[in-house]
Design a binder for these strands. Structure first.
Lengths: 185, 185
DNA sequence: CGCGACGTTGATTTGCCTCAACGATTGTGG
DNA sequence: CCACAATCGTTGAGGCAAATCAACGTCGCG
């Protein structure tokens, strides 16, 4: 947080009062469809993903999160309506959570947090726009290469079929891409 | 703005002091690659789009904006680095602009604006996530139908080839989809 | 050990693209 | 006000990237 804003003692104390640290196990869900997403979560240690299961039964990964990232069903959280996404731990993880109401109150009392969450949301949006763009203009192989370059640590930590579902291709096709890249180099 | 926050007299005056209203002509650019995007723009009247031209020369529409939407190269704006996108007026339009520095100052002086722009960014992010999802799980025809349902007014106002480039398909293919839908109903 | 989850490989299919040609409309200069 | 060009949408033939389906090897875990 100190990368974006400076916190005085009072603000820091108020923050500590509402942050809850939780340990979650591999395969455990912190958000599920039908339940409103009441918290945003900050990853201290571990890895999680947000995904969606389409009516046909195929699953689509919206986002991964590792150390120092934020994660939630953001639509559900922002609008305070029931979620349509799953948020699941891929490893045993430690996260810090802040509730929706607590966040709003904190922002009202300490504008510095308003600023912080504005920064987070703005960067997240700019990032998401980039992803839309890269999905529009790039081939499957290019998307894989781009992602490997940007997030090598994620590529190593998550199963290949989840990566495929994030990149918008089938696991079989990702496998073929990787084989191709391995032989041609 | 009053949908999200209440402004007192002083805040309103400060806002009015830095907002610049501009008229722009059809085909005029308000952002171009290479130049840093110094303002965010709020559409009072008219229609604009953000797009990107790939190395191969095909163009990809990132966003449309009509009355009451915000538009900019958000990545360039947030990080204050040179833009890689075009923002172009599709009709003669009237927009209100706020500069980056002015916005930051305004937010510092009046937390209510910090709050407002946090809301805008959060909603924009949630929206963008939805789009990523729908690009992942839906076919070209489904994406077209979804968009027509959500934004019928945009479908009517923008040329079909721009819509195609927003939806991630070729103009020819969109034409065939429309023909298909017309005959089967 | 045995089962299920995961990755790989190959054969076949398909959704969408490319390219090319052709009307319809728009707008622009003479 | 018309001629002509440019822009935009449509249609069809053919091609390719990626999906689907199916079979098989491997590994980790209960």
């Amino acid at each position: 947080m100190s990368r974006f804003v400076d916190l005085d003692e009072e603000a820091r104390a108020a923050l500590n009062k509402i942050v809850k640290t939780r340990s979650i196990r591999r395969r455990q869900f912190i958000v599920q469809p039908g339940f409103t997403c009441t918290h945003q979560s900050h990853v201290v240690q571990g890895a999680l993903r947000v995904y969606f299961i389409s009516p046909e039964g195929t699953d689509h990964t919206i986002q991964f999160a590792i150390e120092d990232w934020w994660i939630s069903d953001f639509y559900s959280y922002v609008h305070q309506v029931p979620a349509s996404l799953y948020v699941e731990a891929l490893e045993n993880s430690t996260i810090q959570q802040i509730g929706f109401e607590d966040t709003e109150n904190l922002c009202r009392d300490f504008p510095v947090f308003e600023r912080f969450f504005r920064m987070v949301a703005q960067k997240a949006f700019a990032f998401s726009q980039r992803r839309v763009l890269s999905n529009l203009e790039k081939t499957a192989e290019e998307r894989y290469l781009e992602f490997s370059e940007l997030y090598p640590s994620i590529v190593q930590r998550v199963p290949q079929y989840m990566l495929a579902s994030y990149l918008g291709m089938t696991p079989e096709f990702l496998s073929k891409i990787r084989k191709n890249l391995a032989t041609n180099s």
